[in-house]
Design a protein around this nucleic acid. Structure first.
Lengths: 341, 341
DNA sequence: TTGTAGGCGTTATCAT
DNA sequence: ATGATAACGCCTACAA
């Protein structure tokens, strides 16, 4: 029904090869011919059929991005940035939501959509280590975690160092009882483990004792989890005077609990988060946090994939680990003053 | 390189047609044959090539969803819900971010990706009315706006009524100077126009006078816009005692300005938003708002598309308009009390 | 510089 | 119940 190479060729009075040459910008086409063909293309509204092209070339021009959930502002931001970076290479991005389910993540790694996708950028939540080995040959770039000698390329910040930075900010403010919200037991919860390690290191190096009662476990990394964990902390015998939350959503939830109970932030309890999502810039008080260089993460992930997809020498090399910067952002929740109504 | 029908056929000692029959669940295949073919499929790890299938069938199994921006929690939520609804029909969703740029939206409507996509669910921002007429035959479902006698199917809430509900909630609380944040001039800003109309209607029917000084224009619908508009309102000669913000992000920004200036919410100024995003359930104070039935919007959009894509009688009918419910959600920002630190 | 022919992996038609 | 074969639309040797 839609016009094909054949139709254009007929209208322009040339062969389909010539039309194909024009479409693909082949140089050796007589100007007059080119003009005639172009006119026919425009008149017919010809658009190349991507399915046919892919069938021939084996390339779809589509890469997949798999994230735990789009609702989470951090992942939504990363997704937007990756789409932009991919666009510069005229790739289309297929966004996949895993909901953190191991089954779905396994499918992805096994190569679910196989022929339909040229590469995969993957932020795993339920899987770690060996399970992340790609079965089919689709190139994959891992996001967000440092998997030790991992089987695939990955790009991440130094989670442990960043967590230490956040915690050290609190100790440098003179806080002595610093809680952590976001602990997770599962072996695959690499983020949580790394941030906990960074927190403990900073606490210890400030000469404070780590206290299991201050390390709060959570189900997920959402506002509700943070709010609940903070409530438990406040109900304990010795409440903290500062809290490091493993992401901003947890921190915003904690903030909610504190403020609704009339606890002053930061006077009574200082709060710092992680991710630098937009919400934290407009909460009351505004939220101190650690900001990963998200635009750079997105750009590097796409670049890495491009290398693997290209036919340069880098295409077949060993897995690479790229480190991205982070920085501490100090706002009211650690150094401000509670406004008096 | 990956195995095809041919390879499976060779291994099972049958023709490719038989393999195809097995793959597609055709009924008339001898059980013994089916078993033999299935064994070969498993052994070889055969996966159908979607490009070839599409080339044949003309169907890709992919629909596109175009939203202004994923960063916006409301659109992120809608996107997640649509992906889930599409999954139930084993469709894949390609998410497209228009950034509200007219050019990109025009491309979409003109049929940018043409052959690659079976249908389009589109939440327009820059385009309206006639410009939304589909040029190629790809079925399209419009989201979020009521375009009068529009050229395509669409599903939306009654924006004007919902805005009136929000405003009426404020008047019923005895507020007399009610501001609106979110006014936009552009002819295409249908949402803003409809919510403004609803606001004015409710103000008038409460026996109050509408006042241009209370109708605040904004660039976009983000927190920063709301914060700035609120600041201007507070600096005016007669500040309002209540504000209706055209979405929750604006409201959260307004909240930030109010609280940082020591204005009590809701005692001094009551605030209500629109969308019911998660942030509003954890802000301090929690945010009163109008909640569209998002899951239903997503489900209906996908169902509508399915009808057009099917070959039933509904596939060719006139454009349909589906109305979705909304409800008022009352929280602390209108009826609570400021906690005293 | 341009044309011809074959094949990418499926599905559909028509035999058998 | 199963097999042979012809498209689907494009690209690329190879030929002219």
């Amino acid at each position: 029904m839609p016009p094909g190479l054949k139709d254009v060729a007929a209208r322009a009075g040339v062969s389909i090869k010539t039309v194909s040459n024009v479409v693909n910008g082949y140089v050796h086409v007589a100007p007059a011919t080119r003009a005639r063909v172009q006119a026919a293309i425009d008149a017919l509204g010809y658009v190349p059929n991507l399915a046919a092209r892919q069938l021939r070339s084996g390339r779809s021009g589509v890469i997949a991005l798999a994230v735990p959930e789009l609702q989470s502002p951090y992942f939504a931001e990363i997704a937007g940035l990756i789409v932009q970076a991919a666009e510069r290479r005229s790739w289309t991005v297929l966004i996949d939501q895993t909901d953190g389910q191991a089954e779905r993540e396994r499918n992805l790694v096994a190569g679910l959509r196989r022929h339909a996708i040229d590469g995969l950028i993957f932020s795993p939540l339920a899987l770690a280590g060996e399970e992340l080995t790609q079965r089919d040959g689709t190139p994959m770039v891992l996001l967000g975690e440092r998997v030790w000698h991992g089987p695939a390329d990955h790009v991440a910040i130094d989670n442990t160092a960043a967590a230490s930075d956040a915690t050290r900010h609190l100790t440098s403010l003179g806080r002595r009882r610093i809680a952590a919200i976001g602990v997770q037991d599962r072996a695959s919860a690499v983020t949580a483990h790394q941030r906990l390690a960074g927190y403990r290191a900073a606490v210890a190096s400030a000469g404070l004792r780590t206290d299991p009662a201050l390390e709060m476990p959570v189900e997920g990394f959402h506002r509700a989890d943070g709010a609940a964990a903070m409530a438990r902390l406040l109900d304990a015998a010795e409440p903290p005077d500062a809290v490091f939350c493993f992401n901003d959503l947890l921190a915003l939830g904690a903030l909610r609990t504190l403020l609704s109970r009339g606890v002053r932030v930061p006077e009574d309890v200082a709060v710092i988060g992680f991710d630098d999502i937009e919400d934290g810039r407009f909460s009351t008080p505004t939220l101190s946090t650690v900001a990963p260089d998200a635009p750079r993460i997105a750009q590097l992930a796409v670049d890495l994939l491009a290398e693997r997809l290209g036919d340069g020498p880098a295409a077949a090399g060993a897995p690479r680990e790229l480190r991205v910067d982070h920085r501490l952002i100090v706002r009211e929740s650690t150094t401000g003053a509670t406004p008096r109504p």
